[in-house]
């Protein structure tokens, strides 16, 4: 897909995110908006996905395809929107987000059998371990697919992340690309103030990872280039960590760069102001 087209998808995904969060007056728009380019680039361009008659199909085992895991499950709006726009389930279902009897739970789950989701996430720090297991299963199955996993930067404060960080190079899990959404914000404020992670790149390098930076994580071309580079480093005995520098709330001016929009829904007025900044490219749900 051309960059322009990907950017159009991203614009629609951003509209979906703010509308979904507004629709139920809860959820996490900030991190979702910030990771939009990454998820669109992965699902619409870089990931090898199972298809039948030109349509994506889902099965839990995901053999011979690339897999994506969302460890920071609270940014479910961006994932749900991308999955729906890719064709995993009807976009109309986005209207049910966080409502009773919905498959689109506040945090992603497998419990309601939503196509595209392979593990529950929300309690932080568990996704990297799960992705390592899935990547190991691929190796045991002689499956050439790649496993992708996204974590938050605040999430790096969870101890389990560092258990997994130690495991991956030891077992040479080199069919995995992990991302940290480096937006510098968490619920209680800037990450450096709440609990300073210091130099995450140096930490992962010291643990034995290949570390790549995508400095412009909200620039589609830069994200595509970074993903291409990361993929090129697979298969050499080391796991890949991509530090994705993003802006929390990117794309909606009043939500940008502040932890205040981590988990707050816009009111009617704010929704209108947000949508005025985002082109409706694929049709609202």
């Amino acid at each position: 897909m051309e960059i322009e087209q990907l950017e159009k998808v991203a614009s629609q995904v951003r509209r979906d995110i703010v509308r979904m969060v507004h629709g139920c007056q809860s959820g996490h728009p900030g991190g979702s908006l910030g990771c939009t380019e990454l998820l669109v680039a992965l699902y619409f361009e870089r990931m090898k996905l199972k298809e039948h008659d030109g349509k994506v199909v889902f099965d839990m085992d995901g053999k011979d395809e690339d897999l994506f895991f969302l460890s920071n499950g609270h940014i479910s709006p961006v994932w749900y929107s991308v999955l729906a726009r890719k064709g995993y389930f009807p976009v109309s279902e986005l209207a049910t987000f966080r409502k009773l009897d919905s498959r689109l739970q506040g945090h992603p789950t497998t419990h309601e059998h939503l196509e595209g989701i392979r593990i529950a996430s929300g309690s932080l720090g568990q996704g990297l371990s799960v992705a390592l297991g899935a990547a190991t299963a691929k190796k045991l199955n002689n499956d050439k697919g790649t496993v992708y996993v996204l974590m938050g930067d605040g999430e790096q404060q969870e101890g389990q992340v560092w258990e997994a960080a130690t495991f991956a190079p030891h077992h040479q899990v080199d069919n995995l690309i992990a991302f940290i959404d480096l937006n510098g914000q968490q619920i209680d404020g800037p990450t450096v103030k709440v609990m300073n992670n210091r130099d995450l790149g140096a930490k992962y390098e010291a643990f034995g990872w290949e570390v790549i930076n995508i400095e412009e994580g909200n620039d589609m071309a830069a994200v595509l280039k970074g993903l291409y580079e990361a993929k090129g480093r697979l298969g050499h005995g080391r796991p890949i960590m991509v530090l994705l520098h993003t802006g929390m709330g990117y794309g909606v001016d009043f939500m940008m760069g502040s932890h205040k929009w981590h988990g707050v829904a816009p009111n009617d007025e704010q929704l209108a102001a947000a949508l005025a900044q985002l082109d409706e490219t694929l049709g609202d749900y």
Binding site: G62, L67, R118, G133, A134, T136, A164
Partner: peptide
């Protein structure tokens, strides 16, 4: 977590 992931792939 690794165990949970291993089940994805049978």
């Amino acid at each position: 977590g690794v165990s949970a992931g291993l089940t994805i792939g049978g």
